[in-house]
């Protein structure tokens, strides 16, 4: 009973704060609302015995929202806590699509004859997860790791203002390099 109440409260907080993200009139409030939504989902995962994933979700998303706040200040060019904003397009179409999506997903959740539970959880699900990652499921982490590295490289290449290809050309053979100011020792 207590578990049910806790879940409904967390679910309500998660959905309400997600709605607030697109309703409040400042970027800072939107970021806080999204962080609250993530924390609620992370705690709901804890109720589902996902102790590791739940805690990781909460910690990761709080840091991510902090980074997002910095980006907003950088790019919005305004005081994000004070400046009202409403920047939407196709609002009615978006509302219609999201409402239809909810109806379809909710109908699927309620009408599908879900199978009965198969198996029982391990006594320590976090230890079982660690053993799976280091054993039978290691291929997953082996694939995820290079994807992460590729993401780092992609992020640097996209975000860098001027790279060696801008300085030395596509074949890296331009001499002298195209720099805004001549530097070095006069070569």
């Amino acid at each position: 009973m207590l578990l049910d109440v806790a879940f409904w409260v967390l679910g309500l907080v998660a959905v309400a704060s997600a709605v607030l993200v697109f309703v409040v009139d400042s970027m800072a409030r939107a970021t806080y609302a999204l962080a609250l939504s993530f924390v609620a989902v992370g705690l709901a995962l804890l109720l589902l015995e996902q102790s590791y994933v739940g805690v990781v979700t909460v910690l990761m998303m709080l840091m991510e929202m902090a980074v997002m706040g910095v980006y907003m200040v950088m790019y919005m060019g305004m005081n994000p806590a004070l400046m009202p904003m409403s920047m939407v397009h196709d609002n009615r179409a978006a509302l219609g699509v999201s409402a239809a999506t909810f109806v379809v997903l909710a109908a699927g959740a309620l009408l599908v004859p879900w199978p009965v539970r198969r198996g029982v959880p391990a006594p320590d699900v976090t230890a079982a997860l660690g053993e799976a990652l280091m054993g039978r499921q290691m291929l997953v982490m082996v694939v995820v790791s290079p994807v992460m590295v590729a993401t780092i490289v992609t992020g640097v290449v996209l975000a860098a203002g001027r790279t060696r290809y801008d300085r030395f050309g596509d074949d890296l053979d331009a001499s002298p390099p195209r720099d805004p100011h001549r530097g070095g020792v006069g070569r």
Binding site: V21, F22, A94, S98, L105, A106
Partner: peptide
């Protein structure tokens, strides 16, 4: 079903 309902609501809000 109830957890999936909450997830469906979250997904719809995000899609909007």
């Amino acid at each position: 079903q109830t957890v999936l309902l909450v997830a469906a609501a979250l997904f719809a809000v995000g899609l909007y």
